[in-house]
Write a protein that binds this DNA or RNA. Structure first.
Lengths: 191, 191
DNA sequence: GTCATGGTAGACAAATCGGTCTGCTTTTGT
DNA sequence: ACAAAAGCAGACCGATTTGTCTACCATGAC
């Protein structure tokens, strides 16, 4: 990938994440990234195409970060602990690669592109699907009845998304720890 | 309240809810509401002031709707059942007064106004605080140890917010029922 | 050496943005 | 009845939007 292209994506992400996609103009991205307008439109057909590339970039960053954190944990309940500890680090700006917390970028984009049929909205749906699959893989390492895997995965997803919203909208930076506590209660009740 | 003022607020809400605040221009609101521009700026100092009024309007609609639903339920676990049944009705467009589901308007607005110090962001925080208090009142009718009221309230809030996100971003319209199931497990484990 | 590629700065276009204003009509309170 | 308030349509303003275009420079492949 071209260096300029990457620079455009990272600058655009930073601005979109803070101010929303519609709240940031092309010219602001150019000023921040120090790239010429012609170059931007050489790499991307339109602003929407840039947004799509930014979503793909963030999807990759976020997924790999979480996957690495989870891989480092020992199978079982520690995997679930690690999931919420990782979220806690994210919420409290202890993960440099994720940039200062401003909620979930994919939730934010869906707020602006509300139509579920919109390509950008679908891209966000896809991201969440991938993360949910990652969570399911952790749940499978738990010593619980196989028939409970689906429902526990759903519950953990609910808690994760709820924690993100609490942290962002309510400004409750301890949301991940609350979710971890609830997850413990939940899994204990499965045994 | 003036009829025109109300018309402006309801039209603006409908458009903002579907397309996001920055995705809707003043002129579109005027065309949809059939109100003159001068009249809009007679009632509101700026677009931000209109957004603030729309938030207040939605806050009132949503709170009163949920409060009525919860009041009608018998104290105890039925209150919690009713909470998630109400969400299920909302997600599946069975509540006319809330308009077709496009996620939580307050979460959406926070996505566009990411700065927690922004007045519109704070207004959303306030709304969530009020809803959380309403949930806490239901939890108090449960026959659980008083020391658990806080943690159960937090857990239910997490599940509620998570369900909203799952329903909107993932397009999972059964999210409220999954959350209800999880809430049951959780409360059962408190006894 | 030559030529395509990717890059620069920035003028420019057409549309739209939020917001102001004029001039006129309708409604409403007393 | 009459004056004040609220409403109308829409022209207009300056700023900003996305996107195009011209003209030129640097680099590297063949």
């Amino acid at each position: 990938m071209s260096a300029k292209r990457l620079q455009l994506i990272t600058s655009a992400f930073q601005l979109f994440y803070q101010k929303g996609v519609h709240g940031v103009g092309i010219n602001e991205i150019l000023a921040e990234s120090g790239v010429a307008k012609k170059t931007l439109y050489h790499h991307f057909d339109s602003k929407d195409a840039l947004v799509s590339a930014v979503l793909a970039y963030r999807d990759q960053c976020f997924f790999h970060w979480l996957e690495e954190r989870l891989d480092a944990a020992t199978p079982g309940i520690a995997k679930i602990d690690t999931l919420f500890s990782a979220l806690d680090d994210w919420f409290n700006d202890r993960v440099e690669t994720l940039l200062p917390f401003h909620g979930c970028f994919f939730i934010n984009v869906c707020a602006e592109f509300g139509d579920p049929a919109h390509p950008l909205h679908r891209q966000c749906t896809e991201h969440k699907r991938n993360i949910a699959a990652l969570i399911r893989a952790q749940v499978r390492t738990l010593t619980i009845d196989v028939s409970l895997v689906d429902v526990v995965t759903d519950s953990l997803s609910l808690l994760k998304e709820g924690a993100i919203t609490l942290a962002h909208v309510q400004g409750d930076r301890s949301a991940a720890l609350k979710a971890k506590q609830t997850a413990h209660l939940l899994i204990k009740s499965c045994k």
